Simulated scan of single mutants.
Amino acid sequence: MSLQPLTAAGVTAKTTELYALSNSLLAAQADAVQSDFATWIKGNFTLSTPQSDFLTGMNATALKYYGAQCSVAFRSRLTISLSTPTPVGSHKFVGSVNTLEVSTDSAGTLQTTGSLTFKIEYLV
Score class of each variant (00 low, 15 high):
H91A: 10
G114K: 01
A13N: 10
T46A: 09
A28F: 09
A107F: 10
L116D: 07
A38E: 14
V33T: 11
T16M: 08
V102I: 12
T113C: 09
S2F: 06
N44L: 11
K14T: 02
P5D: 08
L78P: 03
M58N: 04
G57S: 14
Y65C: 01
A60D: 15
T49C: 05
S115A: 13
L123Q: 04
F118S: 04
F74I: 03
T39M: 07
G95C: 05
N23Q: 14
C70M: 15
G57W: 07
V102Y: 06
K119A: 01
L116Y: 02
T84G: 07
T99Q: 00
V94Y: 02
T79F: 03
F37D: 07
G95D: 11
A60I: 15
A38W: 00
I80D: 09
F118T: 06
L25A: 15
F93E: 00
A8L: 08
A38P: 04
K92H: 04
M1I: 07
L116Q: 02
T7A: 08
L78T: 02
G114C: 03
S52M: 08
V124N: 09
T7C: 08
I80P: 09
I120L: 07
N98C: 11
I120C: 05
E17N: 08
V102S: 09
S103W: 06
A27M: 12
V97E: 06
T12N: 12
S52D: 14
I41D: 15
L123P: 03
P85H: 12
T113H: 12
A13K: 01
M58Y: 06
K14Y: 01
L116C: 02
K42C: 01
L110E: 04
S83P: 00
S106C: 06
V102E: 08
S81C: 02
S90M: 07
A30Q: 11
S71V: 11
S103V: 07
K14Q: 04
A60F: 13
L116W: 00
A8W: 01
F74D: 05
T79L: 02
S96G: 03
